[in-house]
Design a binder for these strands. Sequence first.
DNA 1: CTCCTTTTGGCAAACGTTGTCAAGAACCAA
DNA 2: TTGGTTCTTGACAACGTTTGCCAAAAGGAG
Lengths: 381, 381
Amino acid sequence: MELYILWCLLCGFFRACIRMVCLSESQLLCGELEPSNREVGCESYVERTKHAMTLTDVARAAGVSPSTVSRILSGTARVTPETRQRVMVEIKRLNYQPNVLAQGLKRGHSRTVGVLTQELNSPFFNETVQGIEYGFEDSGYDPIFSGGHSRKSEERRALDVLRSRRVDALIVVGSFLPDALLLELAKETILVMVGRRVSGLEAQCVFLDNVQGGLDATTHLTTLGHRRIAFVTGNNNHPDSAERFQGYCTALSTAGIPFDPQLVVAGDFGEQSGLMAVDALLSQGVRFTALFAANDQMACGARLALYRRGIRVPDDISLIGFDDLKHVLYAIPPLTTVRQPMLEMGQCAARLALNLLEGKSPPEHTFSPTLVVRESTAMAR
Amino acid sequence: MELYILWCLLCGFFRACIRMVCLSESQLLCGELEPSNREVGCESYVERTKHAMTLTDVARAAGVSPSTVSRILSGTARVTPETRQRVMVEIKRLNYQPNVLAQGLKRGHSRTVGVLTQELNSPFFNETVQGIEYGFEDSGYDPIFSGGHSRKSEERRALDVLRSRRVDALIVVGSFLPDALLLELAKETILVMVGRRVSGLEAQCVFLDNVQGGLDATTHLTTLGHRRIAFVTGNNNHPDSAERFQGYCTALSTAGIPFDPQLVVAGDFGEQSGLMAVDALLSQGVRFTALFAANDQMACGARLALYRRGIRVPDDISLIGFDDLKHVLYAIPPLTTVRQPMLEMGQCAARLALNLLEGKSPPEHTFSPTLVVRESTAMAR
DNA sequence: CTCCTTTTGGCAAACGTTGTCAAGAACCAA
DNA sequence: TTGGTTCTTGACAACGTTTGCCAAAAGGAG
C-alpha cells in the first residue's frame, strides 16, 4: 500500500516536470514562430493561412516518432503513461486535428456517409436530413450532404461529388434517379434509401406505409360523415402520391362511396398547386365537403384558396393534409394531417447504413403513419 | 487533302484495335476477379464493395504512365490526340473518379468549403444554405454542411469535423459561437459569416440592415394609423432582435408615439413563444391594434393565439413579421413581412468565400430589407 | 550526319497517416 | 554472464495523387 502511494507521488512529480519542460518549449516555439507570422502580414488570405499541424509536428514536439502518436490516438498500443501524457499535452497545445484526407487515403475508407437529397431547402426533406444527422451522432461516421436541385442531371453531378469523396455509404432521400441506376449503385456501394421503395432493394429502404396513410386520412373524413371528398394528387405519378391515392380509393369503397373522377385534381406537391386545384374544383362547380391533399404544402395552398372565397374551414369544408410539417401546427386553423415520422425515418436510415457498414443486422425499417387530428376537420354539415 | 483522309482512316483503325485489346483485357480482368468476388459471397457489405478505380488502373489499361493520365486530366500537358483519346476512353469505361482524398492530401487543399449552421432544419437557415449551394455551383469548390443543433458544444464539435476535413474556407451561418472564437478562427482560416456582424471582421460578414427593417415594419404600421404597436422580441439579446427593436423604437419616436414598455414581450424566435406573447399581452389587458414580431415564426404563433380568441387579422389587429419565409405567403391571411433576401445572402457568402480564396476583391455584402405588404395589415380602426 | 529544339511521357519524391516488423531496454531465471 | 520474455518504441512501406526533372524520340536546319 505504501509502495503504491509512493508510486503515485513519483508519477505526479514526473508529470509536473514534463509539463514544465513543455511549457518552456512552447514559449520557445512561439517566439520562433512570431516573426515569420508578422512577416507575411497583409498578404492574400491564402498565404496567410497557417499550415495546419500534422501528426509529425506533434511527434517532433513531444520527442517521439509519428507512429507513437498515431498509436496513442487510435488507442491500439500500450505506451508509458508518461509518453502518452507528453503527447496529449502537445496535441492540446498545438491544437492538432488529424487530417481525415490522409487517414481516409491510408485506411481505404473515409468514415463518411454521403447523403443525396433532392432539395436541401424543403420543409419536407429537412426533417429527414436532421434525423440523419442525429442518427450519425457519436457513431464515428460523419454525414456529408449534397443536393441535386430537383433536377436529375444535378443529382447525377451530386452523386459524382459524393463518389469522388470516397464515401463509405450512400443515403438517398427521395430522388428522381431511376430505379435502374439505384440498383446499379447498390452493387458497388452500400446504399440506403429513405422515403422510397425500390423493388429488389427493399431491405435497404426506409419507407412509410403511404397506402395506410391515405386510408386513415380518408376514413377519418368518411367517419365524420363526408361523402364528397376531393383529392389533390402530388407530382405526376410520384409513388407517394399514387399510394396515398390508393388508400383514398380503398377507404371510399369501404364506406360505400362511389369514386368520382371529378373530385381528383392534379397537383405537384407545391403550395401553389394546392391553391389552383381548389380554384379549378370550385370554378367547375364541383361540390365537395372535404378535401384531402397529398401533402401539407398543397393543403396550405388549398386553405388559402378557400379563405379567398370566404369558405370557412372546417365549418364549410374539412381539410386534411399529409406529412405533418412543423409549421402546420400553427396554420389557421391548425391542420389535421397524417404524420410521417420523418425525423425517426432519417435516424433509422442512418442506423441502417451504420449496421450495413459494420455487418450487423439491420433494424426495423417500415414506418406507420399516424393520424393527427387537429382543427381543420369537422363533422359534415 | 487525300493525305488527311488517309490519316483519319488510320487513326480510326488504330483506335478500333486499341478498343479490341482493351475489351479482351477487361474480360480477362473480370475473369480473374470473379472467383474472389464469389468467394466473398454473402459476407458483410464492406467486403462486397468493389475496389474503386484508381488513376493507376486507368494508366495501366491505357498503356501509359500515371503521370500522363494525371496531366491529361488537369490539362497541364500536351499529349498526342491519340493518347488523350485512348486515356479518355478508359476513364469512361472504367468509370474512374479521381480520389479527392489523395488529391487534397497532395495538393494541400481540398477544394471544399465548410458550412456551419446552427440548425439544418429551420426554415430560416435553409434558404441561406440553398443560396450557398447555388453560389458554389461550377466554381470547382464543393460546400460541405455540418450542423450544431443550436448548442454551442455541438457547434464546436461540428467545427472540429470541418477542420479535420481540411476545408479551405469556412462559412458560418448565424451561430452561437462567441465573437472571440470567430476572431481567432479568422486568423487561421478564411472565414465568412452570414446573418451576423462581428466587429473587426466586417469585410467578411454578409448581413442585413436589421435596424432599417425594424424601422420599415414599424413605419408601415404607424402610417396605417396604428399607435399602440406591440413588439415580440427574439432570443434574449440576440443582435438581430435587438437591432430590429432599435428600428421599432426609432420609428415610434419619429411618429411621435411614446414608447410603452408594456407593449414589448420577450420571445425566442419560435412559434410557441409568439403565441404565448400574445396570450401574455391579452391576459394582462394591454391594449394594442398592431403587433410586430421579430420574425415570421413568432408572427405565425401570434396569429394562432389571435385566432383562438376570435380576434380577426387584419380587421381587429394588424400583424407583421420579419424574414419572409416561404410559407407565410400562404398564411391566413398572407402575412405582411420584411423580406430578408436569404437566398441572395447565401449566394453572396459563397462568392465572398470564393473571392477570398482566389485573392480577388470581395463583392458588395450588405443587404437591405424590403417591406412586403400582404394582407395581414390594415388601417387602424 | 550532327546538332539543336520540340514534343512526349516516365521516374521518383512528396503529402499525412497507419500498421507491420523489428530493435532496444528492462526484467527474470538459470 | 547468458538466454529468453515482455514491454515500449522507431523505421519504413504503403495509400492515390501531383509535379519537377529528365530522357527518349522526332523533326528541322545546317
